[in-house]
Structures are given as structure tokens and as C-alpha cells.
Amino acid sequence: MSRLLRVTDIKVHFPVGKTGILGRPANYLKAVDGVSFDIQRGETLGLVGESGSGKTTLGRAILRALEPTSGEIVYEQDGNSIDIMGLNRNGLRKIWRNMQMIFQDPYASLNPRMTVQDIISEPLLANKLAKGKDLNDQVVDMAQRCGLNTGHLSRFPHAFSGGQRQRIAIARALILHPEFIVCDEAVSALDVSIQAQILNLLKDLQVELNLTYLFIAHDLAAVAYACDRVAVMYLGQIVEIASTEKLYYSPRHPYTEALMSAIPEANPEQVMQPVFLTGERPSPTNPPAGCRFHTRCKYATDECRTQVPALREITEGHFVACLHSEGLSLKGALEHGKG
């Protein structure tokens, strides 16, 4: 596999409060604070973490749908490395043909006053890539691939169920034949039976169209099913990143342990024995010194309060930001079930 995207030390800080006569911000909310990772072509990288950990902000910042404060984003296209941070508006518009996004709420992400045909055509028209019969053919083809009834394309979104709407949103995202899709909680709002349909559809389309996904979600079971690798975020930083199996079954960061051991498995014989976190999540405007997780970590030592752990590779492809990772024996998902 070749690399599609490299993100280096990306930061997104939002100013909060105003002070002084110059109206300088009193403080910054550090939603994403120094995140680096690679995405390989054709893989699905999961991004998990509690609400407020910065997952969505990171997803948007990579596309520059939201302007990062600093950092580097390099996208590989046809053998060329494109520096996304250095692009102007025009350059961004071009690269966005390759990078698209699917949102959580298909009730809010579709314009209620446009027909489905118009919604799916819009990206082609906006980029002046097709018109007339060619436009129509492309829309019908993509609608079919996404499992929509092509006889219903002249209808408005309100006539469709949540699952159907999400299919429309997917068709819209894919109509420009992008390579990279950010799925931000794309199945979270859907019912169980529909969630399975959309997860399967995303997988089929990935193979068919050679797509790469960044899959942001809080449902850890869905992430495990959908992703090849998973990154865990806590207070704006990645604390662990590894293959799905390793991350779920042999986590090396105490926060990952807390997440994995708390997954309620749909099996009454497997009673979960969660490792509870102490205390509350600190505010991202004023993160703790040292390891950001130390205030809630039961393994924390004095070192953790002062030293900032770097994200380091402990076994091949398994990165973790914890000073004591080697000395800890942590519980993974379903650990209690292994006896």
C-alpha cells in the first residue's frame, strides 16, 4: 500500500473570551493539539474518542473545511506530493474533488428544496465537469451504485427515510470520483438494520471505487467492523494508533483500555467488567500538564504529571503515547470473556 495522506503536527485552536483593549482572546480552546498520522491508499482509518476529544474538528481540518492553526497536510496524487496547507482557494477547490465528506445527520445535510437529482448533480455542475445527457447518466449510475431507486430521483429529500437519505449523501460525495472520504459519524443516527446496510454499502463502494476512508465514530463496535486501523483521541491528541485487532484486544494506553473494556457486547453471557476512569474530563482550554490523561489514569506516576509522552512506535505499526506502556498489562475488549 502506498501513502495517500500525511498529517504532521496539526493544530486547531479556537479563541475563547476576549480581554484587553485590543480584544485579544483570553485563551485558546485547543480542539486539536499536535496530531500526526498517515493514511494508506485503500484503507479505512478509524478515529474514536469521547465527545469533545476533537475527532470531528480533526476530520474537517484535514480537508481544510475548517482552517487549521498550524501543521502540515500532504496529499499524494499521481506521484506528486501536494501541500494542502499551501493551496489557495482555487487549488483547494480542485483538490476537494478528491476529498469529500459524509455527515452524521442526513436530515440536516441535504437541502430540502432541491430534488435528489439536483443534489447529486450539484458537485458536477459546480465544477463544470458534466452537462446534459452525460450529467444525467453519471447521476443515474452513481444513484444505482448507492442503492437508490432511480425512478425516485425527481423527489425531494423529505420523501425518503433516514437510510435512503444517507445513500443520497453518499452518492453526492462520490459523484466526483474522489479518492478520500471523511465519514463523520456517518452511521450513528441510523437504526440498527439500516446501519448495517450503510456499513455494507461503504465497504462495497470502497472495493469498487478504490476509496480511502477516515471513519469518525463513537460506536466502537461499528468502528471495529469498518476499520483496518484505529486511532484513539483524548483531549485533542492521538494517544494510540494500531491495527484494529491490536488496538481492541491488546491496547497499550490506559485510556484505550477504559474505552475497550466498556463496550457492551451483545451477548448476555459476556458480562462487561469495565475499567472505570476517575474524575471528569478536563477542559481543552486548560489541559493538564505532562500527560493529559494523568488526572484520570490509575497508573499515573509523578513522571506523568510533568513529562509529556511522545507518540512512539512500540511494536511494528503500533504507536502509543504513554510513558509506562511497556510495564502495564491492560485489558482489551471482551477480556473478561477470555477467562
Binding site: 438494520s193 463496535a221 461499528a222 471495529a224 451483545a266 451477548n267 470473556g337
Partner: peptide
């Protein structure tokens, strides 16, 4: 029951 992702069969 068969539509939900489970960890058991990862």
C-alpha cells in the same frame, strides 16, 4: 441480531 457489528467475530 445478525445486523449488529460484534467484537467476537472481528
Amino acid at each position: 441480531l445478525s445486523a449488529i457489528p460484534r467484537l467476537g467475530d472481528l
